[in-house]
Design a protein around this nucleic acid. Structure first.
Lengths: 157, 157
DNA sequence: ATTCTAAGTTCACTTTTTGAACTCAGTTTT
DNA sequence: AAAACTGAGTTCAAAAAGTGAACTTAGAAT
């Protein structure tokens, strides 16, 4: 019926400008190799500057810069802590806003597992009380799990 | 009971090195302002180079570079298309691997809506057949919706 | 034959990243 | 008390990446 070699195109444009698009705004903050890696540390519970340095092999100036941005944006806080018989130090922790990135973080992990390392999962996600395995999914208002292929973006208001 | 000013810290380290962490691998490809914005275009169905240029106001060299990387990584394909009475042109489309980023994309959108623009949602996600509103959530193997706060990362195998 | 358009390249310039070395205040060691 | 150590940064010069404007190229339309 149709020419499968060279289909005709449906020409579409962005539904909203990048200035008012929440995902575009998020990309301005988080769209950076190191940002995502620093957040990974945060989700693993790593709090110290020097521990992050070693885990990530990130240049010091870059780490400082990223942590400052994360704190400015309210995604992390710099908190004093004091270990037994040690002096006061500072560690970085996720705020509520930062914790809310968990779904994004897990969705990205899930994608990486499937497409970047062929299904092996070196880190799993489980319910901390029941131990059940968890995954990220798209659900309806009535809590039905829905195939992402059925999702459609619509301009609102 | 405890000193709330300066709590003692729990010192933790990354569960896996960044070389074997799926999320870290993903960050090497997607961790870039423009990458995420180009993917946004793709999810909106924008296929043409010049349309993306206009939507994003991205420098041409940068767009070319990002599209090439996306194609190399199998996230997008460059496909010929031909509109009625027009010459053959090329457009960029998501592959299956690219479509699988939908959950990540939607999770990030959801986060941006909540924290970057205070709950306004200029773009909604609905089930294309039922019209029901959709959201990203964490679910168990038995399809129970689970609070992300209950999630725990565990080293596997 | 000239103009137009989509999709790039090229170029000079600015910004950002990088690795290595340096700082600095509080702590333990000698 | 002086010297060495630690955690958490700064500073610096070199390299890499991003930028805006102008140029290119192939095919189509005038």
């Amino acid at each position: 019926m149709s020419n499968t070699d060279k289909p005709t195109s449906v020409r579409r444009r962005a539904l909203v400008s990048k200035e008012e698009c929440p995902m575009a705004l998020a990309s301005q903050i988080l769209g950076d190799k190191w940002m995502l890696l620093v957040l990974r540390e945060a989700f693993y519970g790593v709090q110290r500057y020097d521990d992050m340095l070693q885990d990530l092999k990130i240049p010091r100036a870059t780490l400082t810069h990223r942590l400052n941005t994360l704190v400015e944006q309210n995604i992390m806080v710099k908190q004093p802590y004091q270990d037994a018989g040690d002096r006061t130090r500072f560690g970085y922790q996720l705020t509520a806003m930062g914790h809310d990135l968990a779904l994004t973080f897990l969705a990205l992990t899930q994608w990486g597992e499937k497409h970047l390392i062929n299904g092996r999962a070196p880190v799993g996600v489980v319910n901390r009380t029941t131990g059940e395995e968890l995954r990220v999914a798209l659900v309806s208002t009535s809590d039905e799990i829905t195939d992402p292929m059925l999702a459609r973006l619509v301009k609102q208001s």
